[in-house]
């Protein structure tokens, strides 16, 4: 890949002095879907958080280049405007702020930042209706406060709805499958698949192979103890499903 959309080089990051990421190298090109798998505590969510700009992580070494820019230098909102989107593992409830209002404020903040015209209420609503259909979302969910009182499945659906509205260039899905029953998983996967296109890259972080039956990745990487210990095609996910993560431990230790 000559100019990948996202290029991670020797990335190290720590939380409260404890090193979690210990040298990640990864290149993701436009249009590609990469799955990051790994056992609990391997650093999957830390990687997602560092890319989105969560400030509880301290990057101690390495660099991340996104669309030719130094991603780590950018504020979270600037990353968003530049097309980075993180679907949260635990979406935050914000009582008092309407779901649709929030989304319109976000979308228009991004458009302003990019020098584009803001969407008026009518155009926004039309777009929202279309996207809601894609996620089979109930009208009432969008009228409520952001994620307030949503079930686990509704929250995850709302994340993908936001992604569909914001149309990012790089979508990072952090354990979007966790807490979903199979029907909800299918709907969410269907939404994600509808957003796959040649311009958009996706980083799908998951503990289980199950999600990858529905969102079929181009590449699979295994993260263990803060490093990518194995990379391969979609069949690697199946191998992991069969053998578990245990067989990779020696490789993880050897790196």
């Amino acid at each position: 890949m000559a100019n990948p959309l996202l290029k991670i080089e020797d990335l190290h990051a720590a939380v409260q002095g404890k090193e979690i990421l210990r040298g990640i190298d990864l290149a993701v090109g436009a249009g590609e879907v990469h799955a990051i798998m790994g056992p609990n505590g391997s650093g999957k969510s830390t990687l997602a958080g560092v890319l989105a700009g969560r400030d509880s992580y301290e990057v101690t070494a390495g660099r991340v280049t996104y669309a030719g820019q130094d991603l780590l230098e950018m504020a979270p909102e600037d990353r968003a405007s530049a097309g980075v989107f993180l679907a949260f593992q635990y979406p935050v409830e914000i009582p008092g702020v309407g779901n649709l209002y929030f989304l319109r404020a976000a979308l228009n903040a991004q458009r302003r930042q990019r020098g584009e015209e803001e969407l008026d209420a009518a155009d926004f609503l039309q777009l929202a209706k279309k996207r809601m259909k894609l996620l089979e979302m109930d009208d009432t969910l969008t009228r409520r406060a952001v994620n307030e009182g949503f079930s686990g499945g509704e929250k995850k659906r709302n994340e993908i709805f936001q992604m569909a509205m914001l149309e990012p260039k790089l979508a990072i899905l952090d354990e979007t499958d966790s807490g979903l029953d199979i029907d909800a998983l299918k709907v969410v996967a269907q939404g994600v698949n509808a957003l796959r296109d040649a311009q958009r890259a996706m980083l799908v972080i998951t503990h289980y192979q199950r999600l990858l039956n529905y969102i079929v990745p181009d590449y699979v990487h295994v993260l263990a103890a803060g490093r990518i210990v194995k990379s391969g095609g979609k069949e690697l996910a199946l191998e992991l499903e069969e053998k578990g993560y245990g067989w990779l431990e020696p490789e993880a230790a050897a790196v």
Binding site: E77, R79, I94, P95, G96, Q162
Partner: peptide, 23 residues
């Protein structure tokens, strides 16, 4: 962080959350 990660600027995000508390 959630608001900012969606593109809402830091100051606006803070103000929105104060409003939300009152709302």
């Amino acid at each position: 962080f959630y608001l900012r990660s969606r593109g809402v600027g830091a100051e606006m995000a803070r103000h929105l959350l104060i409003f939300a508390f009152a709302a």
